[in-house]
Computed example of a mutant assay.
Amino acid sequence: MKDMLIDDFQYTAQELLIRNKSILDLITKYQDSNSRVNRAIIKAVTQCGCMTISAHKQEIPDDASLDEMKTSVESHIEGLLCENCRDAIERDIGRNVFYLASICNALDLNLYDIILKENDRIRMLGKYNLR
């Protein structure tokens, strides 16, 4: 079922993309949509204030195991997204995924297969993936 959803999304993106079919246009649209995601997150902090970012150096003990490292690092996010900010960020991420699917279409790649392969890679390496 999930593969059908992703394939359907990628097919729909191919059908709806009319003006920006050039790979150059797609790359710049993808980059622009990514910056809009970043901007929407920043606006949630600076304009709405529904969440805050309290960034500081991550304190990881030198002798920490991988499991201890996982629990000792933080996201630096405090608070929860309000409904308006959540909607804006979801919309911008959706647009970003649309252009990602469009790039896959232009390069004759299947987004679902890419997700499966990446999932296999990260599962195979497990906690040693360290991203």
Score class of each variant (00 low, 15 high):
Asp3Ile: 13
Met4Ala: 06
Asp8Tyr: 00
Asp8Lys: 13
Tyr11Gly: 05
Tyr11Cys: 10
Tyr11Arg: 11
Thr12Lys: 02
Ala13Arg: 04
Ala13Gly: 04
Gln14Pro: 02
Gln14Ala: 14
Gln14Trp: 10
Glu15Ile: 11
Glu15Val: 13
Leu16Met: 13
Leu16Trp: 04
Leu17Trp: 01
Ile18Tyr: 05
Lys21Val: 14
Ile27Cys: 02
Lys29Asn: 11
Tyr30Glu: 08
Tyr30His: 08
Gln31Leu: 13
Gln31Lys: 14
Asp32Cys: 12
Ser33Thr: 15
Arg36Lys: 09
Arg36Pro: 01
Ile41His: 01
Ile41Met: 08
Ile42Leu: 10
Lys43His: 13
Ala44Gly: 13
Val45Gly: 06
Thr46Pro: 02
Thr46Tyr: 11
Cys48Asp: 12
Gly49Ser: 09
Cys50Val: 13
Met51Trp: 00
Thr52Tyr: 07
Ile53Lys: 05
Glu59Tyr: 02
Ile60Asn: 11
Ala64Asp: 07
Ser65Trp: 00
Ser65Ala: 07
Leu66Pro: 05
Glu68Arg: 13
Met69Cys: 10
Met69Tyr: 02
Thr71Arg: 07
Ser72Thr: 06
Glu74Met: 05
Ile77Gly: 10
Ile77Asp: 10
Leu80Val: 12
Leu80Phe: 09
Glu83Ser: 09
Cys85Gln: 01
Arg86Tyr: 06
Arg91Lys: 04
Asp92Gln: 09
Arg95Phe: 03
Val97Trp: 01
Val97Phe: 00
Leu100Ser: 07
Cys104Arg: 01
Ala106Glu: 05
Leu107Trp: 04
Leu109Tyr: 14
Leu109Gly: 11
Ile114Glu: 11
Leu116His: 13
Leu116Thr: 15
Lys117Met: 06
Lys117Gly: 04
Glu118Leu: 05
Arg121Asp: 07
Ile122Leu: 03
Met124Trp: 08
Gly126Asp: 06
Tyr128Gln: 12
Tyr128Ile: 09
Asn129Cys: 03
Asn129His: 02
Asn129Arg: 03
